[in-house]
Simulated scan of single mutants.
Amino acid sequence: MPVRVLIADDEAMVRGGVRAILGSDDGIEVVAEAADGHAAVEAVRAHRPDVVLLDIRMPGLDGLQAAEEIGAVAPGTAVVILTTFGDDEYIGRALAGGAAGFLLKASDPRELIGAVHAVAGGAAFLSPMIARRVIDGYSDVGRAGAARARKRIGALTDREREVLALIGAGDSNAEIGKTLHLVEGTVKAHVSSILIKLDVRNRVQAAIVAHQAGLV
């Protein structure tokens, strides 16, 4: 089954370009487009795509607000922010709002295809151009921060810590299952438990804890 994608951007030319890039991959199907945040949320209700690509600056409901609504109405749909704006504030709001990925429009088209497949497979995806900024900017620094992170992972089982380390390395659920010899459903159950125990909203935030605690 191809990955079903919704593209949300207020510029028709951008939507057309993204559709063309995704159309070069037989494993991806664009099922709908939207020109604003409200339309994106309604399209998610109607089509239930696997992945939504959201611009940030759109009329009415912006991409960050739309991401939060999509998370509420369709928690099984992964959201990737695709934007020109890589400001730290936007990155922080996107990840806090539950986005599974953050990609800049200036990125290589292959990164876009890779991001769609990654988040559809349960992984997180950050543009390499901003990944280090996320780790540096949203991680506590120094011994105190590392100690807090180690305390947080103390609530995890040994297996959950193994899974968390692989999340921190950027592995998808399928890759984690292959490494640990687990079926994907079991991996998903571990990931859900990890997010609850660490009190984080998404895999990116969990990955940051893994880096803080020295698991990666």
Results as ranks from 00 to 15, higher is better:
M1C: 10
P2D: 12
P2H: 11
P2S: 15
R4P: 01
R4W: 08
A8H: 02
E11W: 09
E11M: 14
M13I: 04
M13S: 06
I21T: 10
I21A: 08
S24F: 00
S24H: 02
D26H: 06
D26A: 09
I28A: 01
E29C: 02
V30H: 05
V31P: 12
D36F: 05
G37C: 05
E42D: 12
E42Y: 02
A43I: 04
R45H: 02
R48W: 01
P49N: 05
P49L: 03
D50C: 06
V51C: 11
D55H: 08
I56S: 06
I56D: 00
I56C: 02
R57I: 04
P59K: 15
G60R: 12
L61D: 04
L61V: 12
G63W: 04
L64E: 05
A66F: 04
A66G: 00
A67V: 12
E68W: 03
E68V: 15
V73N: 10
V73R: 07
V73D: 12
A74W: 10
P75F: 14
G76K: 09
G76C: 09
T77P: 00
T77G: 10
I81P: 15
L82Q: 01
T83H: 02
T83D: 02
T83Y: 03
T84Q: 15
F85M: 08
G86Y: 01
D87I: 00
D88G: 00
D88K: 05
Y90E: 01
Y90T: 07
I91K: 02
R93G: 05
R93F: 08
A96E: 12
G97I: 14
G97A: 09
A99C: 15
A100D: 04
A100N: 06
L103P: 09
L104S: 03
L104H: 01
L104I: 00
K105T: 03
K105Y: 05
D108M: 01
P109R: 09
P109H: 06
R110S: 06
E111Y: 04
G114N: 11
G114Q: 03
V116Q: 00
G122D: 09
G122P: 15
A123H: 10
F125V: 13
L126T: 15
M129G: 02
V134R: 00
D136M: 13
D136L: 08
G137K: 05
Y138M: 07
Y138Q: 06
S139G: 12
S139E: 13
D140L: 13
D140M: 11
G145V: 12
A146D: 06
A146Q: 11
A146H: 08
A146T: 13
A149Y: 04
I153T: 01
G154Y: 01
G154C: 05
A155L: 03
T157S: 14
A169H: 09
S172V: 06
N173A: 14
E175S: 14
I176S: 10
G177Y: 11
K178F: 10
K178E: 14
T179P: 12
T179N: 12
T179E: 11
H181M: 14
L182R: 07
L182S: 09
V183H: 14
E184N: 15
V187F: 09
H190N: 14
S192A: 14
L195S: 04
I196W: 05
K197G: 02
Q205D: 04
Q205P: 02
A206Y: 13
A207K: 01
A207Q: 13
I208S: 02
I208A: 06
V209M: 08
H211I: 07
Q212R: 13
Q212D: 05
G214K: 11
G214H: 09
